[in-house]
Design a protein around this nucleic acid. Structure first.
Lengths: 164, 164
DNA sequence: AGCTTATAGTTTGACATCAAACTAAATGCC
DNA sequence: GGCATTTAGTTTGATGTCAAACTATAAGCT
């Protein structure tokens, strides 16, 4: 047993060289979960590269936007809005504070909680990142098409909100 | 300065108790990237819990399916099809082989590459996982609706394939 | 007030992932 | 045949994530 197929090597020419990649995805091909993951990771990868150009971590973008839009938000609220565990936020906020982009102080009425706000420097960085993110979005929009975008987002939101 | 709003604490009642969560998402609300991430993570979380019920790691499912559908596939091909770096696959395959679900042997015609195949035990486990995944899929399908599913998947595939 | 329970944030440990450096085998070129 | 380049897989180091345990404050109850 040695040839082009059977239990052993697969998709090799008669001289053993590898041939293209007609992968059989089976049910994965039409299942939502798998395609959702592949799309998300491709999009994230693209955004990640774009972010690198301006020297920022891609994860910082949503964080800064949420602080900007909700001045005084607490870390727990922020982690919830951002879909991450609150413990993941600890080092992120630490970094943002250290770099002078975010101001963080105990709330008057609840000494356990922190109140987060952007500093002027933070606002500047966010403006920059937003420009970058907008380019990324335009790219995605073009791919999806104006016509389907709204419905697409509606479905994504529904999945995020309603899956048990 | 001390009240219910301003630079400091936010969205607190006049007695300081926290109030609901009318978070302002700003542009994130209608951007594809953010919603894609939130949906993917929610779906993954749900599948993860479901997988736990049958005592399997959620990541194993796609791996086993791809091996089943492409007998003799190499690790590099597999990692590509699965959208992960090949180095991530090393410990996964190691685990699957250790548990007797996957058989792995050097290819005759290329002694660098491994040829992966499911063992009978592996097939059994996959059958079980597939049942579980199908429940998850049905759930997603219901959320999306028969009508929009096809288009939704088409868009996801397009994003995965074409984003630069 | 004093006790119990809940909540905000941090710490810790486990794990998945990527990217870059590495080893061994294969291919291409002369 | 012999040397340079490419390729398959592993190793290593950095990162980001979650979940559970922990500390401190706060809220609720009697």
């Amino acid at each position: 047993m040695h040839g082009t197929s059977g239990t052993g090597g697969r998709r090799r020419g008669r001289n053993g060289e590898a041939i293209g990649l007609p992968i059989n995805f089976g049910p994965l091909a039409y299942w939502v979960g798998f395609n959702l993951r592949m799309a998300q990771e491709a999009a994230f990868q693209a955004f990640s590269h774009r972010s690198q150009e301006i020297g920022e971590s891609p994860g910082r973008f949503a964080t800064l936007t949420l602080i900007a839009r909700n001045p005084g938000i607490s870390q727990t609220e922020l982690s919830l809005a951002n879909g991450r565990d609150k413990s993941s936020l600890t080092p992120v906020v630490e970094d943002l504070v250290r770099r002078g982009l975010v101001e963080r102080r105990r709330m008057d009425n609840d000494r356990r909680a922190y109140s987060l706000n952007l500093t002027p420097a933070g606002k500047k960085v966010l403006t920059n990142m937003t420009r970058c993110a907008r380019r990324h979005e335009r790219n995605l929009d073009q791919l999806i098409g104006e016509r389907d975008r709204k419905k697409f987002i509606r479905i994504l939101k529904k999945i995020a909100a309603e899956i048990e």
